[in-house]
Amino acid sequence: MSSTTVQSLPVSTSAAEEPAITVRNITKMFKRHRSHEGILALRDVSLDIGKNKFISLVGPSGCGKTTLLRMLNGLIRPDEGEILVHGQPPVPGTHMGFVFQSFRLLPWRTIHENVAYPLQLHGMGKDEIHERVMRYLEMVGLRKFAESYPSELSGGMKQRVALARALVSEPDILLMDEPFAALDAQTREFMQFELMKIWHQRKAVVVFVTHSVDEAVLLSDEIVLLRPRPGQVSEVLKVDLPHPRWDYDARARPEFVELRRHLWERIKEMVAADPQSEFFNRDGKSDHAAAQD
């Protein structure tokens, strides 16, 4: 667990196993409106993600977490480098599920119709859709809300619907972009346990973007810490807490505490050193520098 920058580190590939997702030296530039200079969102990022691993992408704002997630989905393409999902460049589709921070349910469709949406896109038969939708609504505990509309549900329930929608096509990769950030603290904690249980029931690669160090340590097999402007892999950390983690108080374990402390220290350093951050130079070490502005 060195604090030096580790790049191109083969993460989580257990022995001979092929990684499910390979990210090789990708760079992504976003063009600013009405200006020729772009913003470098990601520079030379490499990652390997093994089968059925739960990976968190953690880092301060501007580190390109969400950009990386969108690229894994194939929604946007890297400018340089290559991403391979099961050996192929990614295309959006049902083999990957995406859960967004803003639940993104279709307000004019019932819960059942919302969960059915990805299956309908790909022309599955009605009976099969119904059977699958009910199975996954059962899994997230919302079977009896099938005929409700999203506006009748609470935030946590909406996100469970979104989770069911992501899972219903039985993807082997689940991409989650700060899925619990819009929920209150208590709901969030329940959702974390819910997700752990579902993941154990139905293994898949999970790539989980979060701002919460706590959440990352609690859920992940590995944590990829990214540094901002431009986004780069800072280090990759293994979480050695035994599964399943809802059986015991993982947060009380010394490994948990140590890992969280380490991540938090690193993030604080990054933010304090980032001139574009609102907390630039606010780490207490360089008060005089801040005062000069």
Binding site: L75, P92, M96, L121
Partner: peptide
């Protein structure tokens, strides 16, 4: 945001129009 959701689920442009834009415009 809904359009991006549909796209990530593999919707074609015509499907996005029919299932997202049209009901949204109703």
């Amino acid at each position: 945001e809904l359009i991006e959701m549909a796209r990530s689920a593999g919707a074609k442009e015509s499907q996005i129009f029919r299932t997202i834009m049209l009901p949204g415009a109703l």
